[in-house]
Each structure stands twice: as C-alpha cells, then as structure tokens.
Design a protein around this nucleic acid. Sequence first.
RNA 1: GCGCCUGUAGCUCAGUCGGAUAGAGCAACUGCCUUCUAAGCAGUGGGCCGGGGGUUCGAAUCCCUCCAGGCGCGCCA
Length: 573
Amino acid sequence: MKPRIKEMIREAVHALSQEGAIKTANLPEIIIEKSRKDEFGDFATNVAMLLTPLEKRPPREIAALIAHKVAASALVKKCDCAGPGFINIFLKEEFWFSILKEILDRGAEFGRCDVGKGKKVLLEFVSANPTGPLHIGHGRGAAVGDALARILGAAGHEVTKEFYVNDIGKQVFTLGRSVYYRCLELQKEKKEVIDGFLQRLQDDYYKGAYIRDVAEEYLARLGGKGETLDANLSNLPQENWFVINSAGYALISFAKGRLLDAIKKDLADFGVEFDGYFSEASLYKPRNIVDETIASLKDSGFAFDDDGALWLKTMELANDDKDRVLIKADGAKTYLASDVAYHRDKLDRGFDILVNVWGADHHGYEARIRAALKAFGHDPDKLRIIFIQLVALLRNGVPVPMGKREGEFVTLRQVMDEVGTDACRFFFLMRKSDAQLDFDLELAKSQAPENPVYYVQYAHARIKSIMAHAGDAALGIDADALNLLKEKDEINLIKHLALFEEAVERAAVEMEPHRVTYYLTELAGIFHPYYNKHRVVTGDPGLTAARIQLCKAAATVIANGLTLLGVSAPDKM
RNA sequence: GCGCCUGUAGCUCAGUCGGAUAGAGCAACUGCCUUCUAAGCAGUGGGCCGGGGGUUCGAAUCCCUCCAGGCGCGCCA
C-alpha cells in the first residue's frame, strides 16, 4: 500500500523536476506514514523537509509545489501542506475499496511479501541441554524463534529451524551421575555406598524429580534384559566416566535420549516443530569436523598457541575483550571449539543468514562467534543474534519463586498446562524479546477483558459468528457493493487492515515478532468498537453484504496474524 | 574497571532508520446486555519520555556526560 503512495510522490517530484520547478530529480529515502489525525489526511510525508537542504528553499514552499501535483492524481481527493512542511494526502474511498478487494482476493496470502528475496536462513533456537525439561525461559525462546520462523517465511525467506543438542560434555556426565545416584537409592543400596557416592558428587548433580523417573525407567529396562546396575560405576572418577566404562556410557545415552524425547514432546505440544536436531557429538564422529575446523584456523593464522593452549584471535577479529581458548592445555576442546565448528558447518551448508536465539546471559559470546565467521571469510553481519531476557513468573502480581539449584524451577509444561498454549505463546510474544517479561499466570488464564489473547481471538470468533448468523446473505456479492461502506469507522478499519503488510515486513526486517502481536491487539481494538456501533446484518441486503465482506477481511487478517504467532484463531469461544 | 541491555502515566510496556498536540493495556471512577458472542463497548482522570549538555527548521528517538537497575567479562558449558 505504502509503495503505491511513495510512487505517487516520486512521480510528482519527477514531473516538477522535468518542468524545472525544482532541481532535484531523484528522491532521498522518504517516509510515508499513516497520519495520526484525521485532519492530517490518510498519509503524510516528510519529503519537502528532506528536500530543503538540497533545494535551499523553505520546506513549505517545496511542499506546496509537490502537494499541487499530487492533488491531480486519480485516487487523491485532496492534498495540502501543513505544519513545518508536511504533505498530507487525502485519498478517495475507491482507493480503500481496492485495498479491501485485494485482501479478500489474497486471503491467507495477504501479508506475505518478498523482502527476504528467497534468502536461506538458518534459525537456531531453544538448543536446551538434554539434561532436564524445558523451563519457562526456554519457552519464551521457543515462542520467539518459532514465530520468527513463520514471519521470516511469510516475508520471503527460506527458513530452516534447527535445535543444537549439547549431547556431550560436562553436563551430560553430571546427568549420568545424577541418574546413577537415584538408581542406587531406588535399589535400596547400602547406606555407606550411597553416602560414599553422594560425597564424591560434591553437590554437583541434578536434583529434579524427573531424574528419579529416568532412573526408575532405566532400572526397569535393565531388569527387562536380565541385567543389573553395574556397581563399579560408583567407584569411577567423575570426568572420564563414560569414556572408560561401557555401562556408564549406556546409562548416559539412555538418560539423554529420554530427556531429549521429553523436550521434543514439550515442543510438539507447544506447537513448535524443528526441521532438524543437530548433535554436538556429530561434530566429532564419524568425521572430526572440530579438528578440521581448528586446523583451518591454524592455517589461516587466526588460531595460535600460547601457554600450552590454542587460542582464537577474537580480539583482532571481533574486538573482543580477550582472545579465547579453543583447546585447553590438557588437550580437551572447549565448548567454543564445538560451536565454532558448528557455525562453520552452517556456513558450509550455504545459508545466507544465521539467526541464533539465545538467552541474554550469553551476550558475551556473540563476539566469539562473530569472530569465527570473519575467520572463515564471511561477513560477520550474516549472523544475527536475538537475545531473550528473563521471564518473571507472577501469580496475582506476586513473584513465583524460581530456584534452579534446588530443582524447583518452573517448567514450560506446567505453564502450558495451566494457561494453555495460545495464551502462553501470545504472552511470550507481547514484549520485545530483549526486555524482561512479567508473566502473570492468573492474568493469562483469566477470561476477562484485561487478557489480550482472548481480546484478539474473540474478535475472530465474533466475526465467524456473525457470518454464520448471516448465512447466505454473505454469499455472491460483487465488488461494486463495497462502495456501500460509507461509515468513517469502516474506512478506518480498512486502513488498519492494509497496515498488516507493513507490520509483517517490519517484524521480519527487525526480527521482532512482538510487532505482530501489537498490530493484532490494535486491530481488535478497532474492530470491537465498530461491531458495537454498527450492525452488520440488517434489513438492507446490499449493505449487509458489503459489511460481511469487510468483516471477512478483518477475520482473514486476524487469522493470518495469529498464524504467524503460532496462536489459534478459533471460530467459537 | 571494561562491554552489552534497560530507564516513557500509579503498574506492565509500545513508540527509538529524527517529524505535527508522546500512545496502549491494567489499576481507579461512571454508564451500557429483550436486538449479529458483555472474553465486548462508551466515558473520566493520569506524563520535567532517569538528570544535564550538544547537534538542527524539528529530539523520547542521534552524540557526549552523569545517575539507577540487570547481565556478561573462565584453559565452564
């Protein structure tokens, strides 16, 4: 819609320059905005102010010239200048009816665009360790990542959703030990054996109740195969547990597989589906991609030896505070080494844009990955990191205690089950992701006007209900009937529907899904008053038909928007 | 100490590629269900946009500085 207006301005300026009325032939990047007040027309542009320094004339003088030209356009009712040099454009109703027609014609396609130009995007999100259930923070990341995938897709990108699984390293050992400890308990092992093992853990084990469930399943599985728990495991040192002992390896494999399945189940129920799960272990076997990556970094001179360790030149590459270690003095690779290799692999797979959705506490890590991209000869701006701030869970305004240490953190599952996936996702998408989010469980559940989820969904259900009530009156209407929509509220509603395209485009370009949430809340805030003021189904068949079309377009836009958020658009509530 | 994020109405937050008189929801108060869904609507009050300086026709928005809060600065993952 705005491109049409912009083109109109461009033509006017071009014509003026041909006539010699102004000097500038090609426009700077002008802004077209929807006017905030009726007296400022439908759209306003700052073009005259931007031309002022080039033309060396007062903005109002230039504005007057342009306004005069624009006023002659076919779809323009009136065009004048105001304030410091704004040009206010008043469009004829026909313009808005043509937009309405377009929305009805495009249906589910309305809102899609091609700013992405088919670029291949790898969107990595959630990437939780397979050592426990997803908590509420992961939920926010999941909601944001998934909505972003949908939005980028709608804006013409080719999106791949990936979950990076940290299935090797210290924390899966901790997982194994934790499960083993619960196994000993369940077997009612001698007190001194349990205490001895617990002593060795030095409080470094997962304490959540789910560990016990996994332990129970594991024992049952062993029993089913006629095997018993390997008692020797309790004597082994912590670090090399699974490397030197096949029983330990089996236990860890079982536990992390079990927990990853649980994570997948949570995500599926949350409406999030990944295109792929990328295993960190797969970077080491069957091919050792990490070693290959490190070798290439050495070759290119971006990695160097010092103090017995191997370092990546992150200071030189990305202005990091210090260089970072890839291989420790003891020969072990760091987590960063894996991650650098992983990102090289992403690039090798031919993606144009890499988007990572990370917890905000990882922001110090950004420079390191950016450095890696640069070391591989890629533009570091290919990488875009979306940081997710904390979620503060409240109940009736009172904070819900969250202490991961004691294993009593709130899981996504609990919240999802309590408030429903629609409300849960919508709430996660209400704020921009780098702002802390207050999530009130009672508010999310409440079926009251203060709950924005239902406010939007209700508008959709209402329209569907009206259409059901209208029955055949809604059918078989030709486009000309639309000009029966004479009410200011109706034109205003169409105007807002038209803005959906821009909301989606902006959400995609800025990678800010919350813009869609806001847009929908505003749209519902325009529809509900319209519904209350004007009756759709009346004795006048023509007007009824026209209004049904308007409502239908509104329902379409709401449904399209909610779909982008991964929230349902119910026909009945 | 250095880096990143945040500071806008009583509360939670939009608006931040510079634009006209700074917006919404909640909370508070007053009304509206015999009529297409009251999970709704109409109305009222509410602001040194953290402070100060600068840039210019114009600053919540850009620059500098200070203040307050959060996070990060491991040969952890």
